[in-house]
Computed example of a mutant assay.
Amino acid sequence: MQQAALTPESAEIIEQGATVTEKAIALLGEHGIYPDSLQQKMLATHIKAMAWRAYSGESLPELDMEMFDEISKLALSLAEQVCSWMDNLAYEEAHLLSVHFEVAKENELSPPKGESSCQ
């Protein structure tokens, strides 16, 4: 009996995306990076799309790698680690994912809501 082809909304793709997202958020937390709820939703959407590309072989559009010059080594390193948890991903996937990590990393540099950064 032949298995039906997966789609981006197949349970297997959604489950893999959710599992990797959970592990990624835990990994970020180990490094003091805590994405807020909106950042977590955006990260989950991105990782689910990565899970689909890993399965389908769909390629990314060509990227200008200079766009990622401001990404920290930590954010890129963590993104590379997360990408290694899936097979068949393009090298550029880690760069795209690192943007989410870098944005979440900036959370620690902002004062909590209601507090002024001026002393």
Rank of each mutant, 00 (worst) to 15 (best):
M1P: 15
M1D: 04
Q3W: 03
A4N: 08
A4K: 13
A5P: 14
A5H: 08
A5Q: 13
L6D: 01
P8W: 14
S10F: 10
S10C: 07
S10P: 06
S10K: 07
I13Y: 06
Q16A: 13
T19C: 02
T19L: 12
T19F: 07
V20P: 13
T21R: 03
E22H: 14
E22A: 14
I25E: 08
L27T: 04
L28W: 13
L28G: 01
L28A: 10
H31A: 01
Y34S: 11
Y34C: 00
D36E: 11
D36P: 04
S37A: 12
Q40C: 01
Q40I: 00
K41C: 00
K41S: 05
M42Q: 15
L43R: 08
L43F: 14
L43Y: 07
A44P: 04
H46D: 13
K48Q: 15
A49W: 09
M50P: 06
M50N: 04
A51H: 10
W52H: 11
W52R: 11
W52I: 12
W52K: 09
R53A: 02
R53I: 10
R53P: 06
R53E: 04
A54N: 09
Y55P: 02
Y55R: 10
G57D: 04
E58D: 14
E58R: 12
E58L: 12
E58G: 03
L60Y: 15
P61Q: 08
E62S: 13
L63I: 12
D64H: 04
E66R: 15
E66H: 14
M67V: 07
I71W: 08
K73R: 03
L74P: 00
A75W: 02
L76K: 07
A79Y: 15
E80Q: 15
Q81A: 06
Q81H: 11
V82S: 10
C83Q: 09
C83N: 11
W85G: 12
W85Q: 12
M86S: 01
D87N: 11
N88H: 13
Y91D: 15
E93R: 00
H95D: 08
H95I: 00
L96D: 02
L97G: 01
S98C: 08
H100T: 05
H100I: 02
H100Y: 09
E102K: 09
V103G: 01
A104C: 03
K105D: 02
L109H: 11
S110Y: 11
S110E: 07
P111G: 00
P112Q: 06
P112I: 13
P112C: 02
K113E: 15
G114E: 05
G114C: 02
G114W: 12
S116V: 09
S116K: 11
C118I: 13
Q119D: 15
